[in-house]
Every structure is written in structure tokens, then in C-alpha cells.
């Protein structure tokens, strides 16, 4: 389990393929401000779920969009 300080951020993306998922993994893996993440590729919205230590939703969106993917926070 994660500490109470961790927050879960959820995004709608177009990370549909294995390759695009690998690309996002490269971006988010090994970062101190990200505790864990996964992409639900079974879901129509290819939901990216980030367990954040300190990273913000805006920072995730910027990272993912810079890599060429769509990314919007799910309400």
C-alpha cells in the first residue's frame, strides 16, 4: 500500500499500442515523484493511472503530450 500522502491521478489517453505503452513507461519509470502507474488498454479510454508522490496532473499531462499522445484528466 502507499502512504496517505500519495494521490491517484487518472487520465484519458490514446495510448493504445504496446509500443506507445512502452514509450510512456520510459517517461514515468524511475521518477521519484511517481510511485506507480499503469495503462488500462482494455478500456476504451486507455486510462492512465498514476499513483503520485509529488507529481501533479498538469505535469503528467505535459509529459505525455510532449511524447505525442493525447492526455486529459478524467473527472
Amino acid at each position: 500500500m502507499y502512504s496517505d500522502d500519495s494521490k491517484i491521478l487518472v487520465f484519458k489517453t490514446n495510448i493504445k499500442t504496446f509500443r506507445s505503452k512502452s514509450r510512456v513507461q520510459q517517461l514515468l519509470e524511475g521518477r521519484d515523484d511517481v510511485l506507480a502507474f499503469n495503462v488500462d488498454q482494455q478500456d476504451a479510454d486507455c486510462v492512465l493511472r498514476v499513483v503520485a508522490a509529488t507529481i501533479t496532473a498538469k505535469e503528467v499531462i505535459a509529459l505525455v503530450r510532449d511524447a505525442g499522445f493525447q492526455c486529459a484528466e478524467l473527472d
Binding site: 491517484i8 487518472v10 499503469n38 482494455q42 478500456d43 486510462v47 493511472r49 484528466e73 478524467l74 473527472d75
Partner: peptide, 9 residues
């Protein structure tokens, strides 16, 4: 989004 708080997928 709320659902993904409880479960990864």
C-alpha cells in the same frame, strides 16, 4: 476516474 482510485484496471 473514481473507479480507478480503487482499482488499477
Amino acid at each position: 476516474a473514481t473507479l480507478y482510485i480503487y482499482y488499477k484496471d
